[in-house]
Simulated scan of single mutants.
Amino acid sequence: MKTLYILLTIIIFQTSVAQDPRLFENDWYLYEVMSTDLGTHYDVSSINPPIAPYLRISENLNFNGEGACNTFSGVYEYSPGYLGSIIFTYSTEDCNIQQHNSFENEYFGFISGGYTYTITENNQGKIFSLSSPLMGHAVFKSYPLSTSNFQKNKFQLYPNPVKNELFLTSLNNAGNLKLKIFNLESRLLSIQSLNFEKQTSIDVSHLSSGIYFLNIEDETGNTAIKMFIKA
C-alpha cells in the first residue's frame, strides 16, 4: 500500500511538472480568430462597438473567458504543444448586434475544440497562437488590444485567394517591417524584411495550395496577422 501511494505521488508530481507554466502566467487577450470551414476572419480591433474578448487558464486546466457579451468556461486536456477542450459551456444571451453575434459563433466554435499552440515573445509581452487544420486559427496576446498607429494602418491583402503574387497594402507608410509566412501547423515557411511604403508584393508561387498566415511585425514588436488562401 505504501508503495502504491509513493507511485501515485510521483505520477501526480510528474503530471504537474509536465504542464507548460506559461499558459497560466497571465490572461490572454484575443486579437483575431479565423474559421477554416467558413473562411471568415475577425480582427478584434475592427469590431464595432469595441469588445475585449479574453481567455484565462488555471493550473488545474480549467478555463474561462468572454466573447462579445457572453461568457464561457470549460476544462482542457493537455499534452506538450496541444490543448483540447473536453468540457465547454457558455451563456446564450443575444448581443443585439449582428457582428457581435457572428463573432461569438466563430470564437466559441473555435475555442471549444482542440488545437496545437505556440507561445512566442516580443518586447511588449507574449503571443499565444492556436491552430487547428479543421477549425482555424486564433491569436491571443498577454497585453490588451490597443488602437496604436500600427493597428490603424489596416493592412489588406489581395487577391485572396492568390496564385502567384500577393499584394500587401496599408493606409500609411509603416517603416521597416518583417513579414513571416506560416502554415496551419504554425510552421515558419519564409521571412522577409523591407521598408514598407503603403504597398508591396510577395511572391507565393512556391507555396502549395492551402491556407496560410502572414505575420506583419514592425521594429517595436507590434504585430498584425492576415490569413490568405493559396489557390
Rank of each mutant, 00 (worst) to 15 (best):
L134C: 05
M135Y: 08
M135G: 02
G136W: 07
H137T: 10
H137K: 13
H137D: 05
V139L: 14
V139F: 06
V139D: 02
F140R: 07
F140C: 10
S142V: 03
S142K: 04
P144L: 11
P144H: 13
P144A: 06
P144S: 10
L145F: 11
T147K: 13
T147W: 08
T147S: 15
T147M: 14
T147E: 15
T147F: 12
S148A: 05
S148V: 08
N149Q: 14
N149W: 12
F150S: 09
F150T: 01
F150H: 12
F150K: 05
Q151I: 05
K152V: 14
K152E: 15
N153G: 07
N153V: 01
N153R: 08
K154P: 00
K154E: 09
F155C: 12
Q156W: 03
Q156C: 02
L157V: 15
Y158G: 11
Y158C: 08
Y158E: 03
Y158P: 07
P161W: 12
P161D: 07
P161K: 11
P161A: 05
V162T: 13
N164C: 09
E165P: 01
L166I: 02
L166G: 07
F167H: 15
L168F: 03
T169A: 06
T169W: 01
S170V: 02
L171Q: 15
N172Y: 15
N172E: 14
N172G: 06
N173H: 11
N173D: 15
A174F: 03
A174D: 02
A174M: 01
G175W: 00
N176W: 11
N176T: 01
N176D: 04
L177R: 03
L177K: 08
K178S: 12
L179Y: 13
L179G: 02
L179E: 09
K180V: 10
I181L: 07
I181H: 04
I181F: 10
I181N: 04
F182W: 06
F182Q: 08
F182H: 11
F182K: 00
N183C: 04
N183P: 10
N183H: 05
L184W: 01
E185V: 00
